[in-house]
Structures are given as C-alpha cells and as structure tokens.
Amino acid sequence: MTKTITQAELRNGSAGVMDALEAGDDFIITRNGHPVGELRPVRAKRDITTADLKARFARFAAAGTAVEERAEIDAAFGEDRLDD
C-alpha cells in the first residue's frame, strides 16, 4: 500500500517509516505539498544458477543479426535505453 507523508513526518517518524517499509509499504514523500520522492522496500533478490541464465537466454541465440537480437531482447525486457 502506498502512503503519502510529508518531509517532516519522515524526519520525525523515521523509525515508524522503517517498520512500515519492512512490512512492505511504499511511500511518496512530499515537500510543501508537492511529491519529491518515493521510498519502497528492497525486494529480495533470487540466486540464479548459470544453468537458469543459459535457459532464459537460449532463445536469443536464434537471432541471425544484431538488429534481430536487439528486437528479441526488447520484446522480452522492454525498450528502456539510456543512450538512444
């Protein structure tokens, strides 16, 4: 559940915010009534074996060109890029 709290509530109630984060709550932090940031719990990362990774990426090996490979990767993971 996302809660909206002010900068002062974050500062004065940080222990409670931390407890809520551990319980899975998300927060939008506001300053002067305007949203300025988000706090959300860190999601646990899974340990993935090499065999799992190879299986996940095996379908990309079938792409014939770099352009086809990129299209396959974009289709699987989305098109977010930093340097377009």
Rank of each mutant, 00 (worst) to 15 (best):
10 L>P: 03
33 G>C: 06
82 L>Y: 04
79 E>M: 14
14 S>N: 10
35 P>H: 03
52 D>G: 07
68 E>Q: 14
56 R>G: 06
41 P>H: 11
24 G>T: 06
57 F>A: 12
61 A>P: 00
26 D>P: 05
37 G>I: 08
66 A>Q: 13
59 R>L: 11
55 A>P: 11
55 A>N: 10
50 T>D: 11
7 Q>I: 09
32 N>C: 03
32 N>D: 13
51 A>C: 02
29 I>D: 00
35 P>I: 00
56 R>F: 10
3 K>W: 01
10 L>V: 03
74 D>S: 03
72 E>Q: 08
4 T>N: 06
11 R>T: 14
35 P>R: 00
30 T>V: 01
41 P>Q: 13
57 F>Q: 06
16 G>S: 13
67 V>I: 05
58 A>Q: 14
34 H>T: 02
12 N>G: 14
54 K>T: 15
80 D>E: 11
23 A>W: 00
23 A>E: 07
81 R>T: 04
59 R>M: 12
61 A>Q: 10
74 D>N: 09
10 L>H: 00
46 R>L: 14
70 R>F: 09
4 T>I: 13
60 F>N: 02
27 F>K: 12
68 E>L: 09
32 N>V: 00
20 A>W: 02
24 G>I: 01
26 D>T: 08
48 I>T: 08
82 L>H: 08
31 R>S: 09
80 D>T: 11
55 A>Q: 13
45 K>R: 11
78 G>R: 07
73 I>D: 08
49 T>S: 15
70 R>M: 08
68 E>V: 07
84 D>M: 01
21 L>N: 01
15 A>I: 03
27 F>I: 14
36 V>K: 00
23 A>N: 02
44 A>G: 02
66 A>K: 06
53 L>D: 01
49 T>F: 11
33 G>F: 06
18 M>G: 04
71 A>I: 05
39 L>T: 00
69 E>T: 07
41 P>F: 08
70 R>E: 12
17 V>T: 05
5 I>A: 05
39 L>H: 01
40 R>E: 14
31 R>A: 09
71 A>C: 00
67 V>P: 07
47 D>F: 07
57 F>W: 10
8 A>M: 11
76 A>P: 05
17 V>H: 04
38 E>R: 02
80 D>I: 14
64 G>V: 14
56 R>L: 07
71 A>F: 07
39 L>A: 08
79 E>A: 15
53 L>R: 15
63 A>F: 01
70 R>K: 09
83 D>P: 01
50 T>R: 14
53 L>E: 05
9 E>V: 05
56 R>V: 01
82 L>W: 07
83 D>W: 04
61 A>C: 00
27 F>Y: 12
